[in-house]
């Protein structure tokens, strides 16, 4: 049976227990699925599951984000579709004790791969997309203007290309069979390369990237770990840490402290990078942090619920510092 059919059946089964289930449905075109809140049985048929279902629903969980937003009440129970990478976000939030395990049901989706639209856009003009079909390790893409066959490896998200945890690490129900993980080797390639360049080049590179930031804070709002809400110092006037101007330096500073606030917590889900409307490679910054955390503390965020995030603890004798 198709994974989607199993999912639909499972949603039908758990729907009486929960207030709603968050899954994916069709968006304005085939490349842009949209989060879908299923609260009635008739809505289940609209659920979809394909290479483009990418949103990290863990983001809807932290109470500071949802309760004041009236999204759902504190005591409500929800179900959500969770990919391998998203499950790490959930574990991270559980570790921080910001969410509680008995308030949601996880429908774990083993995930083969997701297509990075930013990479796909470089290959073909996806504004006029008509169809996208995967066969083997290639994809046939048809737009209004042209038709192309593209190697899947060239258009997968980096996190998928080196996906170590394609199967959810935490779930109530696993939908379909598990898939094989890929090798992590090479995941930090772009970070390694960037470290090697000179300081001047680094500066001018970030200068160029942050020049086009519009300070929409989508990176922050899309991040499951960013739940400071009103208290985010990016906008507070008291304390007044950062100017509201859109000078490149202020935008870079914002991203620096946002990133560092996620040090040891970031699970490399890549949502910040994906949602950026102007394509700033934020995940490169986040990856640098996860790389350092891995090197210094031999720790991966969101893998084991029992561990304490590395910057919230210490060792008297550090293994890799000193």
């Amino acid at each position: 049976m198709d994974r989607l059919d199993i999912l639909k059946e499972k949603v039908k089964e758990i729907l009486p227990e929960v207030d709603f289930v968050i899954g994916y449905s069709k968006g304005f075109d085939i490349l842009h699925p949209s989060p879908y809140f299923v609260s009635e049985e008739r809505q289940i048929r609209n659920l979809i599951w394909d290479e483009f279902c990418i949103n990290n629903f863990a983001n809807y969980l932290p109470p500071p984000k949802r309760v004041p937003n009236g999204l759902f009440k504190q005591d409500e129970k929800i179900g959500l579709v969770v990919k391998g990478c998203d499950s790490r976000s959930i574990i991270q939030l559980l570790q921080e004790e910001i969410i509680f395990r008995d308030t949601f049901i996880i429908l774990g989706m083993p995930c083969e791969m997701k297509i990075d639209l930013k990479k796909l856009r470089e290959k073909i003009d996806i504004d006029y997309i008509q169809s996208f079909n995967v066969s083997g390790d290639k994809a046939e893409v048809k737009t209004l203007l042209e038709k192309k066959t593209i190697n899947l490896d060239e258009i997968l998200y980096d996190k998928c290309l080196y996906c170590k945890y394609p199967n959810p690490l935490i779930y109530d129900y696993l939908i379909g069979d598990k898939v094989n993980p890929r090798s992590r080797e090479g995941f930090y390639k772009d970070v390694d390369e960037f470290e090697m360049i000179s300081n001047e080049e680094k500066i001018s590179c970030w200068e160029k990237e942050f020049d086009r930031c519009i300070r929409c804070y989508a990176c922050r709002e899309a991040c499951p770990n960013c739940y400071c809400q009103y208290q985010c110092i990016a906008q507070t006037r008291r304390p007044h840490w950062i100017s509201q101007s859109t000078e490149t330096i202020d935008k870079k500073f914002f991203q620096m402290f946002r990133a560092f606030h996620n040090a040891g917590r970031c699970t490399d889900c890549g949502e910040c990078d994906r949602v950026c409307p102007v394509g700033i490679p934020i995940s490169k910054i986040m990856k640098k942090l996860t790389k350092e955390v891995l090197r210094l503390f031999n720790y991966e965020a969101g893998v084991d619920e029992k561990l304490i995030p590395p910057l919230m603890t210490y060792k008297r004798e550090e293994d890799n510092i000193g």
Binding site: K202, I203, C205, G264, I285, K288, L289, L311
Partner: peptide, 24 residues
């Protein structure tokens, strides 16, 4: 008792992080 142990971890990560962002 333990303030500087936490600091050590944070500042060590910070050192490499700011280097990445263009501050040697």
């Amino acid at each position: 008792i333990e303030g500087n142990f936490y600091a050590r971890r944070r500042l060590e990560v910070l050192k490499y992080f700011i280097d990445f962002m263009g501050i040697e």
